[in-house]
Design a protein around this nucleic acid. Structure first.
Lengths: 229, 229
DNA sequence: CGGCAGCCTATTCGATTGATCAGTCCTTGC
DNA sequence: GCAAGGACTGATCAATCGAATAGGCTGCCG
């Protein structure tokens, strides 16, 4: 356990296309990571078995220990890939909005966050998972991935609040009201389908939800799509 | 497995006080249920082990199979006890508000729900857990416990919306915005402590959060406790 | 063309899981 | 008092977990 083995090539970032007939290690790693993300978010860290991850990825179980060293490193790698997608989406949105007033930028970022939560409910599911245990994995998760996002969003909310452009609520409360309102419908999608008949996996529903969240928290939202059920 | 055994006395509702020196079976059942609720919410159904539940309850592991028939029935019994507490709290609040205008009643019910979520984060944690798997347990959970609560709250929100006393947002969206905004801070309490320094287990923080939720969703809340961080 | 490194599989290990069974202790009813 | 039975424990079961080991296959490089 304490012994550090040499890790596989791990050409993670620059996914070089390898046009050989031999099975590509990058493709395999990608399939394993996608399967791991699904199963870790569905069954939690302890509940997900490496065998089932391997089956869903179409490989054998010892291969997970070949590419990643143990269940824990596989978990971290899967989380990394998920947060990479999120930060990429948010960063490209932000760089495309240079010069726009801060209120509008915040609304568009929030909308982007709602749509990402709808398309990737695994994010909040895994965070919720690890928050319950309050162990070393939530430490890593917060310090590695969540804190930069929180700091940026809390600063943004505080500036808007002080300028009277957002509700006068302490940033921490506003942050959790915002993320909770944005993500809960998609995290609880199976419940929502059974209770209300609304299917959160429908992109139109996600847009409606983004409108609703923005209209409630910022007073201005596109209500065009709203219909009473 | 398919054989149905005779179940223990199960004097669940009317907890008759047994003033004997013998260890009370009801007390033992209660301790097991409390421990099960904690561990099921912390580690999920598959992740929680019956041995650890037994250790936390101060009993041996075979006793869980004596009082409850298998892990699944123990899980259901633990959920029952949690929802019994919630419906009791909400019902007594509602019966004490007969004759009050509906807007005020709704606000006070929402406040009660926020405070319950703060004191019992296991509720949303378990619902989130089971929603991920989308299996038979979420079926049971929705039909047995959640649907009555949802129907009552959705009806209430729809009436208020149509009267112009609540945001004009479809009830399903409003419901998940409300419950998400109310509960997420407490579900993610360990993350919140690390990120912001705010401790959601502090009752004063729970009151602040109830104020914030009400002021954002209904425009009126007691802002007396709000302070910028 | 021969070795060699990279990618992957079959097999198996010790540990741990939920569940069962036999048996003990103690209270209660008669 | 004494049989009956409820409450509980120790020991153990087969199943399954994550991980380790050894070996096979393929395609490139000298």
């Amino acid at each position: 356990m304490g012994t550090v083995r040499e890790r596989p090539p791990a050409r993670s970032t620059t996914r070089t296309v390898r046009a050989t007939s031999r099975p590509s290690a990058d493709d395999t790693r990608g399939r394993i990571l996608a399967a791991a993300l699904d199963l870790f978010s569905e069954r939690s860290f302890e509940g997900a078995t490496t065998r089932e991850i391997a089956v869903r990825a179409g490989v054998t179980q010892p291969l997970l220990n070949y590419h990643f060293h143990g269940k824990e490193e596989l978990w971290r790698a899967a989380i990394d890939s998920l947060f990479d997608r999120l930060t990429t989406v948010l960063d490209t949105r932000l760089t495309g909005l240079r010069g726009v007033d801060e209120r509008t930028v915040t609304e568009l970022v929030v909308r982007e966050f709602v749509l990402f939560s709808a398309a990737n409910p695994q994010l909040h599911r895994i965070i919720t998972q690890e928050c319950k245990a309050d162990g070393p994995r939530i430490d890593w998760l917060v310090e590695t991935h969540i804190r930069p996002l929180y700091d940026a969003m809390a600063d943004r909310l505080r500036r808007l609040s002080e300028a009277g452009l957002a509700p006068a609520v302490p940033p921490a409360h506003l942050y959790y009201i915002l993320t909770g309102a944005a993500a809960t419908m998609f995290v609880l999608a199976p419940e929502c389908r059974r209770l209300s008949g609304v299917d959160p996996s429908d992109p139109a529903v996600a847009e409606q939800h983004a409108d609703a969240v923005l209209s409630l928290l910022f007073g201005t939202g596109n209500h065009s799509g709203h219909k009473e059920l």
